[in-house]
Amino acid sequence: MSTTQRIRTILAEHGRLDADASALDENADLYQAGMTSHASVNVMLALEGAFDIEFPDHLLKRSVFESIAAIRDAVDSLAPQ
């Protein structure tokens, strides 16, 4: 499964989105799509578990989790090379 696909799966499970995570545009604003602050925390923790990564403090901000593309950039930057 691609990174994007795995992110969509995590969003579907933890993002509490009003929209269908599998069909959402990569650049769509997830907060606009209904993701609350608490849901974004659950998404972050689920991403850490699924990708075996750890978000450093400087990435624990709203913009990092605002879209599928932004999440993928962060995951790619943290994944073991």
């Binding site: 602050s37 608490h38 974004s40 659950n42 972050m44 923790l45 403090d57 624990l60 901000k61 709203r62």
Partner: peptide, 14 residues
């Protein structure tokens, strides 16, 4: 916790 640090940043940003 760590999730809390994220909530805190969210709260300040907004």
């Amino acid at each position: 916790g760590k999730g809390g640090r994220m909530l805190a940043v969210n709260q300040r940003e907004q």
